[in-house]
């Protein structure tokens, strides 16, 4: 790989030190057994069907002051930040497009993945996530309202602990709402991981890793991500990686739909809280401005009186 001359580069042969630790190369069976303990609880104490909380404390908007709209989502350890910019002209395009475009870019921070350091240049996984994000957001945004323009959505994954694409979609939905981009509905997404007959809702990185490495026997394994528009009851994106039978998938879809609907009240609370805060700030500023104007008016009256007297 040619050295990137626009960045400072380290030695080409550097490897992560984790490769030399004792518990790096664990066989699949042991990793599989480690996922659930005796009481059927996962490594972080959750039940199989319990998702990580996305209540108001872990999702905020208006985090990036320079962007039109932005959002930050934190699900236990997975941390994702997203910013949305004003519509701008589509670069390198000559023909008129009837619908506006959404330009998405998903990027992992170099220090975000636990197993290795990610390169600065976008690799295939990031490009695939960017395309998936765009496909998920397109049905939700009223693209006919900004023809021939594009809205930029940039997502940065600061820490990767599973369920990255679904949380990126959640963050992007919040950021688009914060940026006042016209949308048909709120967009939410969730992930499940399937290992054999166990379904893990909102998997962590170690659970996803086990689900994506293929076992020796022919059992169901994989990861499914579903994003939907809850009011309209429409699915905007469905991504499935792995191998499983049709019954498993239909079962999984029911679970995922319920999960997506569970997130909706949290998203609504965040957006409404933001709106209320904005209104109150505006009212306060207007009140202060009115007070100052009144002071100036009284001063004007005094001076007029002085002028007339003199």
């Amino acid at each position: 790989m040619p050295q990137d001359y626009r960045r400072f580069n380290g030695p080409e042969d550097s490897v992560s030190y984790k490769r030399f630790t004792k518990d790096y190369l664990k066989p699949y069976n042991i990793l599989n057994d480690e996922l659930l303990n005796a009481k059927e609880l996962r490594q972080d104490g959750r039940a199989l069907t319990e998702a990580r909380s996305m209540c108001m404390f872990f999702a905020t908007t208006q985090v990036v002051s320079q962007a039109k709209g932005s959002a930050y989502v934190e699900r236990d350890k997975t941390k994702i930040i997203c910013s949305v910019f004003d519509p701008r002209e589509i670069p390198h395009q000559n023909e008129f497009s009837q619908l506006g475009q959404i330009y998405c870019e998903v990027k992992f921070a170099t220090f975000s993945c636990p197993r290795k350091r990610r390169p600065h240049a976008p690799d295939a996984e990031e490009k695939a996530l960017s395309v998936a994000l765009r496909k998920a957001l397109e049905p939700a945004v009223c693209r006919h309202l900004f023809p021939n323009y594009q809205v930029d959505v940039f997502v940065y994954i600061l820490e990767h602990d599973g369920a990255c694409l679904s949380n990126a979609i959640n963050a992007a939905g919040l950021a688009l709402a914060d940026a006042a981009v016209p949308m048909y509905d709120v967009i939410t997404a969730s992930t499940i991981a399937v290992v054999g007959d166990k379904i893990f809702v909102d998997p962590t990185e170690s659970e996803e890793y086990v689900a994506l490495t293929s076992p020796e026997t022919n059992i169901n394994h994989g990861v499914i991500i579903l994003s939907m528009l809850p009011e309209l009851k429409q699915i905007s994106d469905f991504t499935h990686i792995g191998s499983m039978d049709a019954e498993c998938i239909t079962n999984a879809m029911d679970i995922l739909e319920k999960e997506c609907i569970k997130i909706v009240p949290h998203v609504q609370k965040v957006i409404v809280a933001n709106l209320v805060k904005g209104f109150e700030e505006r009212k306060k500023l207007e009140k202060e401005a009115a007070e100052r104007e009144q002071l100036l008016n009284t001063k004007m009256e005094e001076w007029k009186k002085l002028l007339n007297a003199g």
């Binding site: 960045r7 400072f8 580069n9 380290g10 030695p11 042969d13 550097s14 490897v15 992560s16 030190y17 030399f20 921070a109 170099t110 220090f111 975000s112 350091r117 600065h120």
Partner: peptide, 23 residues
């Protein structure tokens, strides 16, 4: 800022120095 540690062989002309790469 995030720091990731890795192991490598030192440069031949500076065999007793590690590397500090900031970006």
């Amino acid at each position: 800022c995030g720091i990731k540690l890795e192991l490598a062989t030192p440069k031949a002309e500076e065999p007793n120095k590690g590397f500090l790469i900031t970006n």
